[in-house]
């Protein structure tokens, strides 16, 4: 009788220790992200992986912390540079430390969808595109950032080769805007248009222009872009 109780208790006790450890790690990850302590985030992740903690759990902890950062931005407690910096730190940790381990154990981790994003050919304006990319990442999407001066061919190739859900194109010059249309036309020609959603943005971009060129949507700021992507991919807000 006593033996049975003890046997039952021990595993429970072990699990409990593990739970305490895990929540301790999650707490540290959250703290590191909310205080924008990049070094601490990296250290915590490394130490936890060395201890043999589940990388999937670490990823969930980071995602949860990022969501909190996002909420704090929406409520006005956090500012844009803090949001973007937290996103960048998380991205580094995920791609450099977690992804390699996850790959080894055959688990890629969950995301809401894949976004291929870039500034169109002839245009080297970077910042707006990067803010949108960062906010989409923070919201839980996987980002393929193609950079600036991205040719039509590059967009096509990316859609062909990857599991892309959304193509997002930025243009800041009225003279480079037509490249958004050309990219959409090329997607049609290659029979790829139905496989992806296309969104457009950039200072001279209007709702009318987005409609005219047959994009699936337009957003005039980064938060709106996140809502737009969720809407067109049919993802509920939470």
């Amino acid at each position: 009788m006593n033996e049975i109780i003890i046997r039952k208790i021990i595993p429970f006790y072990k699990i409990h220790i593990l739970l305490i450890q895990m929540s301790e790690t999650a707490r540290e990850i959250k703290e590191a992200l909310l205080t924008l302590d990049r070094e601490k985030l990296i250290q915590t992740t490394k130490t936890s992986l060395d201890k043999g903690e589940n990388p999937q759990e670490l990823l969930s902890a980071i995602t949860a912390a990022l969501r909190e950062v996002g909420d704090k931005f929406e409520s006005g407690e956090f500012f844009l540079v803090e949001l973007v910096s937290a996103g960048e730190a998380a991205k580094t940790v995920i791609s450099e430390y977690l992804k390699p381990v996850l790959k080894k154990i055959g688990s890629e981790g969950k995301h809401l969808g894949v976004i291929a994003i870039g500034t169109v050919a002839g245009d080297i304006h970077d910042i707006g595109k990067s803010i949108v990319a960062s906010m989409l990442f923070t919201a839980g999407f996987e980002i393929l950032d193609l950079g600036v001066d991205v040719t039509v061919e590059k967009f096509i190739e990316t859609v062909k080769n990857g599991n892309v859900d959304v193509v997002a194109m930025s243009a800041l010059l009225s003279t480079t805007l037509p490249m958004q249309r050309e990219t959409i036309e090329a997607l049609k020609k290659k029979d790829l248009r139905d496989k992806v959603k296309v969104i457009v943005g950039g200072s001279p971009v209007t709702e009318e222009w987005a409609k005219e060129i047959g994009a699936d949507g337009f957003a005039d700021n980064a938060s709106e872009a996140v809502r737009l992507v969720k809407k067109i991919l049919d993802i509920s807000e939470r």
Partner: peptide, 8 residues
């Protein structure tokens, strides 16, 4: 400046 709430 880039507005820290809206990015504009």
């Amino acid at each position: 400046n880039m507005d820290q709430r809206t990015g504009v």
